[in-house]
Design a protein around this nucleic acid. Structure first.
Length: 559
RNA sequence: AGGGGUAUCGCCAAGCGGUAAGGCAACGGGUUUUGAUCCCGUCAUGCGGAGGUUCGAAUCCUCCUACCCCUGCCA
């Protein structure tokens, strides 16, 4: 992407940057970073952060790094790293230089820890986890100093060396900053900056058995990379004094500043990595890329486009106030993109047989229809017409309801791009279900209005003898409650939508849809936007419904 | 009296002392061989509440209220 693709919108972070630029801070440079921990897949909330960080760099002619915050090897994996790289790329962003890892800086971080010990600003504490919790105090009570707090520099150096050499068991001790056990900000009560983990690390292997904490690693990594604006979410606000303390007390090359914004909440879904992982692990969805998941890979498989996701992020803005964005906003963004860019096609999802009694048996006509009603550059497609057709079951009622614009017994309707037909006879089976319609067609209505009568409306159709068998997967919101996490007594799992996926195995699409590549978007006219799923085979295409069309008929019916 | 934040239309969000942008949703109407798109119109005498300062306050001050985050050797 180029600067022209940068977000047009502005926000409080851009305002800060513009002030910094005016004062020529950081030599007029803007360097940001997107720092995911590789312990899960990226979701729509991350997209907000990605668009902010990369978009800001783009807007101000700066750079944005992709840095994996990999200080907790037990929860991380290469699979997540790969997926994150893939997703950021797919969203359309490019990072500066190589992909970076906090683990790249483990040696420097270690040296800085030694530096702090020598300065008397860090000490090895042999309190165990439970004791440490007790000494820490509470939200309303000050903590107490650890009995190990005043060890000599040499003693601390020696213990830290032992920690590093792997001579100590996990949990026996940790390295802590010596700040203030009585601070009202709990993050300043001698935070742990190194702990022992005899774990294999996905990047550094068995080189280390002590790992820096987030607080110790993050700001220093920012400084090492020359980050000017370190943007994170609101829950890190209380960590900022610690972030600044470390920058001030360490010989870092530059002084980055941390700014916080509100994370994204979207209704009818969840954006907790832990809970998304639970959905996958417990098989409530097929995988991280299940089209119902709010993950980037899920949205991708659902048929969302990078441009739509970026537009959504631009629409919702960046502030410091917590809120919940309406899913309709995301849907609006994808409809907007796909309306302009998706070719049109016809697909009958629940077929009802229509036989044209006055159409010659064995005859076939091919009609050229525009791929897009407004964009001629998208070209044309060919659809086959014949005596045996299929229409949508929903598009027929024996007795037309009020304002009905579809087919009814004895009445006429236009077949999109083809003729006007009239329903002459309704065939039912023994159970009284409608199984076929005998219709007549009006040969004079191809590209012309009928004479002496009016068609009710326009419906879609396919030629039963020349259509592509396909499976259509109708996806809907994953949860039935706007906020599935709100109920204190129930699990979010209790609010899963049983109809979040409805599979229609016997759908039929127009001929041109055969063998289309995965991720190709279409608008199935009158139904919605659909995308080719990678499960498609030569025998059977699979389409996922991305989102329905806006449906004013549904509104009329509900009133 | 723990600390740190946030409150502007149903939702998101501009506004930065000069008289409430925009988007989403909703509701009317027009065009339409997609009940889509598109177009036109309606939608906060009001900015969490109460006081105060000011010629003038969503913007400044005071008090209050509600909600969010913080007691991992997670990030």
């Amino acid at each position: 992407m180029t600067k022209n693709d940068a977000p047009k919108s502005t926000n409080f972070i851009h305002q800060i940057i513009e002030q910094d630029l005016q004062q020529n801070l950081n030599d007029g440079k803007v360097v940001t970073r997107f720092p995911p921990e590789p312990n899960g897949y990226l979701h729509i909330g991350h997209a907000k952060s990605i668009c902010l960080n990369f978009g800001t760099a783009l807007k101000y002619g700066g750079e944005c790094n992709l840095r994996f915050d990999d200080t907790n090897p037990e929860k991380e994996s290469q699979e997540y790293i790969d997926s994150i790289i893939r997703d950021v790329r797919w969203l359309g962003f490019e990072w500066a230089g190589e992909v970076k890892y906090t683990s790249d800086y483990f040696q420097q971080l270690y040296d800085w820890a030694v530096h702090l010990i020598k300065e008397g600003k860090a000490y090895v504490d042999h309190l165990n986890a439970a004791e440490m919790r007790e000494y820490r105090g509470s939200l309303t009570e000050a903590g107490r100093n650890s009995p190990y707090r005043d060890r000599s520099v040499d003693e601390n150096l020696s213990f830290f060396e032992q920690m590093k050499k792997g001579e100590l068991e996990e949990g026996t001790c940790s390295l802590r900053l010596k700040i203030d056990m009585a601070s009202p900000n709990i993050n300043l009560r001698d935070p742990v900056i190194y702990r022992i983990r005899h774990a294999h690390h996905h990047q550094t292997g068995n080189d280390w058995c002590i790992y820096p904490s987030y607080d110790f690693a993050h700001g220093q990594s920012d400084a090492l990379e020359g980050i000017t604006h370190s943007i994170c979410t609101l829950e890190f606000e209380d960590h900022r004094p610690l972030y600044d303390w470390l920058i001030e007390n360490l010989p870092v090359p530059v002084v980055p500043r941390q700014y916080e914004f509100a994370r994204l909440n979207l209704n009818y879904t969840i954006t907790s990595k832990r809970k998304l992982k639970q959905l996958v692990d417990e098989k409530h969805v097929t995988n991280w890329d299940d089209p119902r998941m709010p993950t980037i890979s899920g949205l991708r498989r659902r048929g969302y486009t990078p441009a739509a996701i970026r537009q959504f992020c631009d629409m919702i803005g960046v502030t410091r106030s917590n809120g919940t964005v309406d899913m309709a906003m995301l849907e609006s963004a994808i409809r907007d993109d796909l309306d302009a860019n998706a070719p049109r096609a016809m697909c009958v999802t629940r077929p009802l047989k229509v036989t044209l009694v006055n159409y010659e048996e064995g005859k076939e006509e091919w009609f050229e229809l525009p791929a897009h009603p407004k964009d001629e550059s998208m070209g044309a497609r060919s659809v086959s017409f014949g005596r045996n057709l299929l229409i949508e079951q929903e598009d027929f009622e024996e007795v037309a309801p009020r304002k009905w614009k579809r087919l009814a017994a004895g009445e006429a309707v236009r077949l999109r791009g083809a003729y006007v037909i009239r329903c002459e006879e309704v065939i039912k089976n023994a159970e009284g279900e409608i199984i076929e319609l005998k219709c007549s067609y009006d040969p004079a209505t191809k590209g012309a209005n009928p004479e002496g009568y009016k068609a009710n409306g326009v419906i879609h159709w396919v030629n039963a003898d020349r259509s592509v068998p396909c499976e259509v997967r109708l996806y809907d919101r994953l949860f039935t409650e706007a906020n599935p996490e709100a109920d204190k007594d129930k699990s979010f799992l209790d609010f899963m939508n049983p109809e979040s996926l409805v599979v229609l195995a016997d759908a039929r699409a127009e001929p041109g849809l055969k063998d289309q590549a995965a991720e190709t978007n279409y608008q199935f006219e009158r139904l919605g936007y659909f995308v080719v799923d990678p499960d498609s085979t030569e025998e059977k295409m699979v389409f996922n419904r991305t989102v329905t069309l806006r449906d004013s008929w549904a509104k009329i019916q509900n009133n």
